[in-house]
């Protein structure tokens, strides 16, 4: 190297990439990272709406019994009609309950935050988790402190981060570990250079719940149950494991 100019010339002569970036995939992944905040607001708003509306539509919920008030205002002739309509509606409800329960179970299992977006920590398997144990690396992109309650495996699509399969939160193996802090506490400073590797972690084996359709690009990703600094229990997913 005859000098700095020569180095500059040689570096700048190096060719650029042959392929292009996939903008749609980037936007989709970024949307997914932004979505949990929107979902939380929506859920809170829906919950508030239910609390406000419930006393007017569910007779038993209000100590003031608004239903009788409404019916008396509408007259006795109209009282029977809502009751007749109530029977089939109740039947539908019981059928819908099972479906709703299943959907709620899947929704709970699949409502997993991306670790990097949620807590500013990059989490990755350092070796193949196929044998039930793995080294798990935590890299702090932002300052963070939390207690690790358990580590399992989710099936995630590479490139999009779409969760295909996740452990069932109703599984006793999952239930037992919540709040346990069995893997101790971790904390680090942000910036991407501070990190911790947990060696030989026995992974939580729980029944899986399907979240979305399969993919040719699916890979196991670390799913971490943790208790954050505020005491809240959270579930986050890290990066899909790359073989080779």
């Amino acid at each position: 190297m005859s000098g700095e100019d020569e180095l500059r010339r040689r570096l700048q002569e190096l060719p650029g990439p042959a392929g292009r970036l996939d903008v749609d995939a980037v936007v989709e992944r970024a949307r997914k990272r932004r979505r949990p905040k929107v979902a939380a607001v929506t859920a809170a708003a829906t919950g508030a709406g239910v609390l406000i509306v419930a006393p007017f539509v569910v007779p038993g919920l209000s100590p003031m019994s608004p239903s009788s008030t409404v019916m008396s205002e509408q007259g006795a002739g109209q009282e029977a009609a809502p009751e007749q309509e109530q029977a089939p509606a109740a039947g539908q409800d019981s059928g819908g309950d099972a479906g709703a329960a299943g959907a709620a179970q899947a929704a709970e299992a699949c409502a997993i935050e991306d670790a990097e977006a949620a807590i500013g920590v990059d989490i990755a398997f350092e070796d193949d988790p196929g044998d039930g144990t793995a080294d798990v690396a935590f890299t702090f992109l932002e300052d963070a402190s939390f207690q690790v309650d358990g580590i399992g495996v989710a099936l995630v699509e590479r490139g999009t981060g779409r969760i295909i399969e996740a452990p069932d939160p109703a599984d006793t193996a999952v239930d037992r570990l919540l709040g346990s802090g069995r893997h101790g506490s971790i904390e680090g400073e942000g910036g991407g250079t501070d990190g911790t590797v947990m060696l030989g972690v026995p992974l939580v084996l729980a029944a899986p719940v399907g979240c979305s359709g399969g993919s040719d690009h699916a890979a196991p990703a670390p799913l971490v149950w943790l208790t954050d600094a505020s005491g809240a229990q959270r579930v986050v997913v890290g990066d899909p494991y790359r073989i080779g």
Binding site: G19, L21, V26, A30, R33, G159
Partner: peptide, 19 residues
């Protein structure tokens, strides 16, 4: 490595614009 580089950039873009 170009493939590694593209992954790294896509990850960085998604993380940046996710935030």
């Amino acid at each position: 490595d170009e493939e590694e580089a593209r992954d790294m950039v896509q990850d960085a873009l998604a993380a940046t614009f996710g935030r």
